[in-house]
Nucleic acid binder design. Structure first.
Length: 332
DNA sequence: TGCGTTACGGTTGAG
DNA sequence: TACTCAACCGTAACG
């Protein structure tokens, strides 16, 4: 249940606990920093805690992204069917093998790397639960077929000497969405969805691209993006990809100066005036008043109603375009 | 005074 | 469907 109103920090700024700042604010933090404005001044001006400013700038410097990380979800499991299959194979070949030895072999054989190799305890659990149970079942089935008479206790390690019923299934390793299926590579559990530069965001690229009537070649198609929680804030932005920025300046250039200039910032809304969820989902807020951007439809662009496109929030455009630099959100 | 770091309370979403 | 867990968030406080 969303709160009707957010909270107010010590600087008078409105925020929603647990939720990222609007991308417009994040963007402006970076812009102001690039203009040489000190973080403390940015903090005061935008009424965002200096810790948050520091964090966003640090993230931007490291990843090139102003976007918040992906919230929620689970880490990809390391005990994939392939891993289980290999563990079973190791155990079959050497019934006395230790879990830590299996772990070393998974690494040595390139089945896993240091980032996704299961822990010793996980391997032990696999041996005990998955392989053990399946092996016992398999043995029992085979036993029923071939041994009409009951037998005494099963021999030690009997469980490892059965034909694997799940080998075929284990051969298929599910690849998480957005993660290239590169054997032996480090599986980045979370990749930034896109790339673009702040310069682009400021409109320089938009100037050159707009009016061409089609998506710039440098921008991956919408289907190339994996939107999860990146900047898509409550309230959503259904036309995120198709958003176009329309310059408002007479010369056809976006009002970059008005956008980045600290002095042009509209007063931060008072808590009584603006619900933080208005900033996320509804009415335009004072955050971006006067920035000169408009949605292609002609309606004023609210950074929250339709926030800065997540796809436009990268500086490592070329790198990401080539898919050579995946950056995890958890890097920070 | 500025800023990096961290504890805290909160949200989110995959499993 | 409800729950758990681990990721993330921004703030506040500390050094």
């Amino acid at each position: 249940m969303r709160p009707a109103f957010g909270e107010v920090n010590q600087l008078g700024g409105v925020f929603v606990n647990g939720r990222p700042l609007p991308n417009a604010i994040r963007l402006r933090i970076v812009e102001l920093a690039q203009l040489g404005i000190r973080p403390c001044d940015i903090s005061r001006q935008l009424r965002v805690s200096h810790g948050c400013v520091s964090k966003i700038l640090a993230r931007y410097n490291e990843t090139g992204s102003i976007l918040p990380g992906a919230i929620g979800g689970s880490k990809p499991r390391v005990t994939t069917p392939t891993v289980v299959k290999h563990i079973r194979t190791y155990k079959q070949r050497d019934p006395g093998i230790f879990a830590w030895e299996i772990r070393d072999r998974l690494l040595a054989d390139g089945v896993c790397d240091k980032y996704n190799v299961p822990s010793v305890s996980s391997i032990s659990r696999i041996l005990r639960n998955k392989i053990g149970n399946l092996a016992q079942q398999g043995h029992y089935d085979s036993y029923k077929q071939h041994q009409p008479a009951p037998q005494p206790a099963l021999p030690y390690n009997h469980i490892y000497s059965y034909p694997s019923p799940i080998t075929a299934a284990a051969a298929k390793v599910p690849t998480p969405p957005g993660v290239p299926a590169i054997p032996g590579s480090v599986a980045m559990p979370r990749t930034w969805p896109s790339s673009h530069s702040v310069t682009d965001i400021l409109g320089i690229r938009s100037i050159t691209d707009q009016g061409k009537g089609s998506r710039p070649a440098s921008i991956p198609p919408p289907e190339a993006f994996s939107f999860r929680n990146y900047g898509v804030l409550p309230g959503g932005c259904p036309d995120l990809i198709n958003l176009k920025f329309m310059p408002s300046a007479p010369n056809g250039l976006p009002a970059v100066s008005s956008f980045v200039s600290a002095s042009s910032m509209a007063p931060y809304p008072t808590p009584a005036q603006v619900s933080p969820y208005m900033t996320y989902s509804a009415a335009p807020s004072g955050y971006v008043a006067g920035h000169g951007w408009q949605h292609a439809s002609g309606t004023p662009l609210s950074p929250h109603n339709c926030d800065i496109p997540a796809s436009l929030a990268f500086k490592g455009m070329q790198a990401a375009r080539e898919g050579s630099h995946s950056v995890t959100a958890s890097a920070l």
